[in-house]
């Protein structure tokens, strides 16, 4: 379990970013963190990943303090993070060297197979010998995801992984996330794109430096009014279903996919005919 206890963070000039955050994330969960710009989402992601120390409180990962120097390597093996800007995480001008760097530091064996398997998961196996700096932003981000997967951490944190990526690249990253979800990988992702929250089991809403709400995905329809009061724009699919329901068409959506929604609508049209 990844646990945050009474975590607060402020800069040296006293500017408060986060206040009294308490959070537990179980293994196998997919959790999304949403909030307006400046609410501290990225700061929270970095604190969770153990690379930014909170000014108060502590973070433990499977019972280990995330900031004790003696546990540095253990923590790095347990939790990986992908930054928002794909350029910020690439160190070397060879995909293989860049991915092998973490494996060398953490003394992880069987490097070649780890790298090949990780690249295959993100669909970039043909780019092993390429210069990552010369790839597109979407490809760079997939390489960064592969670099984390090669270490095989228990917890994977994605800080707005699709923000700088084009539509095609976004779809590829969503596909990777869905596959990882099926493999029971624990994923915590920060997002500004409301449609992405449908990938998660739990949605954490940050507001005024605190956790304002935690909503389970199956509770989304019940909490629509609360979300609207928080000025959270609903995912397109939820908005569409809400409009249908307002028009008298009852939709009982179990799976938040276009396929599931279209099946229900087609079924209803056929029944009416």
């Amino acid at each position: 379990m990844l646990e945050m206890n009474h975590v607060s963070f402020h800069y040296k000039d006293g500017k408060n970013i986060l206040e009294n955050i308490d959070l537990q994330i179980e293994q196998g969960e997919v959790v999304s963190i949403i909030g307006n710009n400046g609410e501290g989402k990225s700061t929270l992601a970095r604190i969770m990943a153990g690379i930014l120390k909170p000014t108060e409180g502590n973070v433990t990962i499977d019972g280990i303090n995330a900031y004790e120097k003696k546990h540095f390597k253990s923590i790095r093996k347990k939790v990986g993070i992908v930054f928002q800007n794909p350029e910020n995480q690439i160190l070397f001008n060879s995909v293989y060297d860049d991915m092998a760097f973490a494996l060398n530091n953490l003394a992880l064996t069987d490097q070649e197979n780890r790298i090949k398997d990780a690249l295959k998961k993100v669909g970039m196996e043909a780019y092993e010998k390429e210069n990552p700096f010369q790839l597109s932003l979407g490809q760079k981000q997939r390489i960064n995801i592969a670099s984390v997967l090669a270490v095989n951490p228990k917890y994977m944190i994605l800080d707005e992984p699709t923000t700088m990526i084009d539509a095609n690249g976004k779809q590829k990253i969503y596909s990777i996330m869905r596959n990882l979800k099926k493999e029971k990988q624990t994923i915590i992702f920060v997002t500004n794109h409301m449609n992405e929250i449908l990938l998660s089991n739990r949605i954490i809403i940050l507001k005024n430096k605190k956790i304002d709400h935690i909503i389970k995905r199956e509770e989304l329809f019940e909490k629509l009014e609360e979300l609207e009061k928080l000025h959270i724009q609903l995912p397109d699919m939820i908005q569409f279903v809400k409009l249908l329901q307002q028009g008298g068409v009852h939709i009982n959506l179990q799976e938040y996919t276009l396929e599931a929604l279209s099946k229900i609508i087609i079924g209803k049209i056929k029944n009416n005919n």
Partner: peptide, 16 residues
């Protein structure tokens, strides 16, 4: 900024 991000990248890749 780049130096700061490089430091974070090194930490996430287990460099001590």
């Amino acid at each position: 900024n780049r130096t700061n991000e490089l430091e974070n990248a090194l930490i996430t890749k287990g460099y001590e």
